[in-house]
Amino acid sequence: MAFSELELQRCERDLNAFLAKRRPPPSIRNELDVVYRIDKQNIEIVEIRPDWRDPSMVRARPFARITYVRSGAYWKLYWIRASLKWHSYAPQATTRHLSEALDVIDRDEHGCFFG
């Protein structure tokens, strides 16, 4: 089930605050950028950059996924491994609020999201 309009606005507010801290300066965003995608109850944080072999092609690589579990009213946090499979972020797999999950990603204490 997708987010309601009010829930979507809250999510976008938190995500835009996160991106305000994490996006690169506007002068290099054509070479590297960080954006988000929302699909139903999944939010992906995505790195966008030109392909290193063919700069005319742009690659989008998700590196964090946050899923809202409505039945339990909590958020699950995932990171993507080199195998391109999503794994629960073991140090803190769930949070009560989206902003808390975004803080975990921002701190990246184990180098899973930003390396």
Rank of each mutant, 00 (worst) to 15 (best):
M1G: 07
A2E: 07
E5W: 08
E5Y: 11
E7A: 12
R10E: 00
R13V: 02
D14K: 13
L15F: 04
N16I: 04
A17R: 14
F18D: 07
F18E: 01
F18Y: 15
A20P: 05
P26F: 09
P26M: 08
S27H: 09
I28F: 03
R29A: 03
N30W: 05
L32M: 14
L32I: 07
Y36G: 06
R37S: 08
I38L: 04
K40V: 11
I45Y: 00
I45D: 00
E47A: 13
D51C: 15
W52D: 11
R53V: 03
R53W: 03
R59N: 05
R59E: 09
R59H: 11
R61T: 11
P62R: 07
I66N: 06
I66R: 04
T67P: 00
Y68Q: 07
R70E: 10
A73P: 02
Y78P: 09
I80E: 00
R81Q: 05
S83F: 00
L84K: 10
K85H: 04
K85T: 09
S88F: 04
Y89N: 02
A90K: 07
A90Q: 13
A90E: 06
P91M: 13
P91R: 09
Q92F: 05
A93P: 15
T95W: 01
R96T: 12
L98W: 12
L102K: 08
V104K: 02
G111R: 09
F113R: 04
